[in-house]
Amino acid sequence: MSAPSLETKVGGLTLQNPVIAASGTFGYGLEYRPYLDLNRLGGLVTKGISLEPRQGNPPPRIWETASGMLNAIGLANVGLERFIAEKLPALAELDCAVIVNLYGEAVDEFAALARALDGRRGVAALELNVSCPNVKSGGMAFGVDPQAVAAVTRAVKAETGLPVWVKLTPNVTSPVAVAQAAVQAGADAISLINTLLGMAIDARGRRPRLANVVGGLSGPAIKPVGLRMVWQVAQALPGVPVVGMGGIASGEDAAEYLIAGASAVQVGTGNFQDPASCRRIAEELAQFCVENQVARVSDLIGSLRPPA
């Protein structure tokens, strides 16, 4: 059998393979240059960019858990101005799709970020982090409120012709209502899942392990939740491109997400386990296709069969 085609289309983009590096685990991309060829990635999503620089939370910020990790970094980033001046020029030279993740605490902050990035060379799409607190609704996360997600998505779409992906939080009863609201407001794709809210305790010291007390759980521990939510959204909203993530550490993990209904996947915590993870996972996915007589990786998308 000839080499399988790894190309996939998602949310307004055509990617050379479905493996994208996830926001918050890949810096501004260039940090990984010594470890893999960035041009061969399906894409990369930058650290969440806010209007102003953010220093982040006090340490300790991370804690390893069973098959996972908790983080409460606090969205530390260089801010929009320095991102455009210092990071974007080098990103614009890459052959892979660069998706810029946006973080705001009010609708107009998201809109201002989108306006500033619209038409910039090197930006292939925007991904909205709606897991952040909505200052106008007393700090409740945008992502748990379909109307708030719709408002953010609509405001961003009004400012840019770039594809807009909305990254959903799993900390809801069902992601379908929120996904639907985002799509109706113009989202080109749905990314899910962000981290699950969790905590860890030092029983001997009777203190939380994180200075922030609670943090986001990621890694292989959350893969079943991610698969379930991707499947739910794909079932409920056929035709809506989904970017699946949560605990992907191998090519077979990626295949599971595609089968559940994702058109592409993101690798997050896997980049910490092994800085060359994205390359390895894409290679393993190609091998999976060969071994299972799959000619095109896109043939896997939404191909889940009923229970035996």
Partner: peptide, 22 residues
């Protein structure tokens, strides 16, 4: 400091800097 990546991206290993920030 606890760190996940060692290469500057996870931002787990923040140490308080003189003045402000990490």
């Amino acid at each position: 400091a606890p760190m996940a990546c060692g290469i500057g991206v996870c931002l787990g290993c923040a140490l308080p800097a003189a003045g402000e920030g990490y």
